[in-house]
Amino acid sequence: MHLREHALIGAAAKIPISAPRPVMSFSPVVLPFADRKVDLELRVSVPSTGDALPIILLSHGHGRSNYLSSLEGYAPLSSFWAGHGFAVIQPTHLSSKSLSLQSPTGQELLWQSRAQDMVRILDELDTIEAAVPALKGRLDRSRIAVAGHSLGALTASMLLGMKNTDPRDGSSVQTHEKRIKAGVILAGPGNGGSDLSEFGRSQLVPFYGPDFSTMTTPALVVCGDEDVGPHLTVRGMDWHADSYRLAPGPKALFMLKSGKHCLGGISGWDAKESADEESPERLAAVQRMTWAYLMSQLYDGNKAWDEACEALGGLGELGTVETR
Rank of each mutant, 00 (worst) to 15 (best):
S279W: 00
V132D: 06
W111I: 07
N164H: 07
G229V: 14
S96E: 05
F199G: 12
D306G: 04
G224R: 09
P218M: 10
I89H: 01
A275G: 12
A11I: 00
N164E: 04
H2R: 08
L154N: 15
T233W: 11
L31R: 03
N191F: 07
V234P: 04
A241G: 05
V173T: 14
L263D: 00
L71D: 03
Y244F: 15
T214P: 02
L232I: 13
Y67V: 10
P76A: 10
L77I: 10
G229P: 02
T320N: 00
S78A: 14
L77F: 08
M158D: 07
G188M: 00
R235M: 12
M215A: 09
D270S: 09
G249D: 05
D211Q: 09
G183M: 09
N191Y: 08
F199H: 13
G229A: 15
S100V: 02
H149Y: 08
L294E: 05
M215Y: 07
D227Y: 11
I89L: 04
S142C: 01
P104R: 11
V88S: 01
L220A: 12
E278W: 07
L186A: 06
V173M: 01
P250Q: 01
G190V: 10
A153C: 14
L101M: 00
G137V: 05
A182M: 06
G63L: 00
H176C: 07
G161A: 08
S27W: 15
M295S: 14
Y293N: 03
L154S: 15
K303G: 06
Q90S: 14
G61C: 04
V222N: 11
S95V: 13
H84C: 01
L204T: 04
A75G: 11
A156H: 10
G83I: 03
G313W: 04
M215W: 09
L256S: 02
L122N: 12
